[in-house]
Design a protein around this nucleic acid. Structure first.
Length: 581
RNA sequence: AGCGGGGUGGGGUAGCCAGGUUAGCCCGCGGGGCUCAUAACCCCGAGGUCGGUGGUUCAAAUCCACCCCCCGCUACCA
């Protein structure tokens, strides 16, 4: 449970050869941001880190195609993405990159430590090499004719036509996907991380972990129990990456996966060092002194539930193993997978061109967060979340409440008078919803937690309608006082719950409600913010709807595609050269 | 192919793990009400037998078996 003070919150490091799309965002960065903000709201000491993952074959080849150095490519891509995080109001303490020196040194040191402790071994492998591009090709980067079905576009790992598993040398007429030339097969030495030696420890850790989500836990247990853990290669024949630190490994780099995972720690080190707190990072990483939370997509589970803990254990240092691994399922786009090559989906720079208030996107994305299963991003749903839920049920409800207080009681929140059953029921619901919200958020069940907000908005409207204070004010002022106090408390509760999700708007709401500083402890109730003679400011609507005309365009498939086409062209021009289509 | 997750009215979902009131909720749709509020809000109604088949049971959306479909991982794509 939360409440113990110190946290490192992280999200998977975006691979920087593309702009992230909405699915990437909800799975990692946005979820992590909401969680970090939630913890900070309760006064926890949080360091929220991530960074651009910039090494690996894909970027190396991409850069070569453009005739530039990989670093030039990642420099400008990184800069652009950093701007986008600002626009999305992501509260990183340190958004860094795998090319930073602290990181490179940290990775080399840690890998060497693992090596010295006997968890790295060497083995020779036959690897395809493109003599034209002068790179070694991962399986997926070889194409050829399938020996079983004759399909010409089969890849080195599998034939997409007949589904058979292949080895690169099975292919007839193999060719490099980048340039089409025929690869050679060369014998290379590689270094392997001995996951097999850590199998027992990982299994024990997972089995005894009571905070892991079922999808993470089940996956890991079954992986270990069915196939067991095998040594995994940690080196590559790339030039673009972190040089491997092992004896005689001068021409190798560290496989990007291992590289990027260790960024969580190096980013913490870098952050604290910049503040002149060089030695304090161990207070966030060693001896159970802090909790760590990782926000990832489901494809990332093996790396965070097995490989990362394995490396931390293998180092021999007393690292904290993951407290929370929150792995979302996938966000689909109108029934299809997001796909850069097929232009299916919406990218995070495009999104803000369509609707510029990031709070609306943040709200909608959290509401459709694929917490238990794949979820569709559908534009009708997006409009519904923003217009109907956030604007009507929540925003308008708060506006009603504040207006009534402003008009009937001259901006002063009335004290509670006598309570009837309905009042008690509402107060009880507020109470329960608040604790549900806090409990669910504490376990990173963000979407589930957000349901409490909607519920309070809906029930608040019902309550107000039944109580009809605008009618009763003429005959029963005492009951109106109670109604408006209860409704105000409900509004404050909603605003607090919105704080991590829609930070700009929630801050405006709280300000309007006369609440200046939000400092909570676990166990606190929202009522603590309602002072004696509490006064509010003149209410104005905080949320507005997506305009009718735009909503119609977005919902109609044909109109939408034309519209998105224009947006894409426009956004494309604003992107740095290296990130354009 | 194996493993994991999922398939609930037009859309989105809760329930299933600890089987038992007329399968709950939101949107949409039809009808009504209210007027404090952002053409908002509230109430009523139509609409589902819970992917398919078979089984266990007095009783299954909930347990078991098989099948179909979707997603992911295994598969050095980061």
């Amino acid at each position: 449970m939360v409440g113990t003070g110190r946290w490192v919150v992280t999200s998977a490091w975006p691979y920087i050869n593309t702009v992230p799309h909405l699915g990437n965002l909800i799975g990692s960065v946005l979820s992590a941001d909401v969680f970090a903000r939630f913890l900070r709201m309760f006064g926890e000491d949080v360091i929220f880190v991530s960074g651009s993952d910039e090494h690996g074959t894909v970027i190396e080849v991409e850069a070569r195609k453009k005739g530039i150095e990989p670093k030039e490519l990642t420099d400008s891509a990184h800069e652009y993405v950093v701007k986008l995080w600002k626009a999305w109001n992501i509260s990183f303490d340190n958004y860094t990159r795998t090319e930073n020196e602290v990181h490179k040194k940290y990775v080399r040191d840690l890998m060497l430590k693992i090596y010295e402790r006997g968890f790295i071994s060497r083995k020779d492998q036959v690897i395809p090499y493109c003599p034209n591009d002068k790179i070694y090709l991962p399986d997926r980067f070889i194409e050829g004719t399938c020996p079983y079905c004759g399909f010409e576009g089969a890849r080195g790992d599998q034939c997409d036509n007949c589904g058979r598993l292949l080895e690169p040398h099975d292919l007839i007429n193999p060719r490099c996907v980048f340039c089409g030339s025929k690869p050679e097969f060369r014998l290379r030495t590689h270094w392997f991380f001995r996951l097999d030696l850590l199998e027992g420890k990982i299994l024990e850790w997972v089995l005894n972990h009571d905070m892991l989500d079922a999808n993470v836990k089940n996956f890991t247990i079954s992986w270990i129990k069915t196939t067991g853990l095998a040594p995994r290669s940690v080196t590559r024949d790339n030039r673009w990456g972190i040089p491997a630190p092992f004896p005689n490994s001068e021409d190798k780099t560290i496989y990007v996966w291992f590289d990027a995972l260790l960024g969580y720690i190096s980013a913490t080190i870098e952050y604290l060092a910049k503040q002149g707190r060089e030695n304090e990072w161990v207070n966030y990483w060693f001896n159970g002194s802090a909790k760590t939370a990782y926000f990832i997509g489901k494809d990332n589970i093996p790396f965070h539930a097995v490989i990362l803990p394995a490396m931390l254990i293998a180092s021999g240092d007393p690292y904290n193993l993951p407290t929370i691994i929150s792995a979302t399922e996938y966000l689909m786009y109108e029934g299809k997978k997001f796909s850069k090559s097929r232009r299916v989906g919406v990218w995070i720079d495009e999104a803000l061109k369509i609707v510029d208030n990031p709070d609306y996107w943040r709200y909608a994305l959290i509401r459709m967060r694929p917490e238990d299963k794949d979820t569709n991003f559908r534009w009708v749903e997006f409009v519904r979340f923003v217009n109907n839920e956030l604007n009507d049920h929540i925003g308008n409800y708060i506006n009603r409440t504040l207006n009534l207080i402003y008009r009937f009681f001259n901006a002063q929140v009335p004290n509670i008078s006598t309570l009837d059953d309905e009042d008690r029921e509402m107060l009880d619901l507020i109470d329960r919803s608040w604790s549900d919200y806090v409990n669910l958020m504490s376990r990173a069940r963000i979407k589930a937690a957000s349901e409490a907000i909607v519920k309070l908005g809906e029930r608040g409207n019902q309550y107000l309608n039944r109580k009809s204070p605008w009618f009763k004010i003429k005959e029963d002022v005492e009951s109106v006082k109670t109604t408006l106090y209860v409704s105000f408390l409900n509004s404050v509760t909603i605003a607090l719950m919105l704080t991590p999700i829609t930070p700009y708007s929630a801050a405006k709401l709280l300000d309007m409600m006369g609440i200046e500083e939000v400092k909570l402890s676990f166990g606190d109730k929202p009522s603590k913010f309602i002072k004696e003679n509490h006064r509010i400011k003149k209410p104005t609507p905080i949320f507005s709807k997506i305009p009718q005309e735009l909503a119609e365009v977005l919902i109609d498939e044909e109109k939408r595609e034309k519209y998105l086409e224009r947006i894409r062209e426009q956004v494309n021009l604003e992107r740095p050269e290296v990130l354009r289509y």
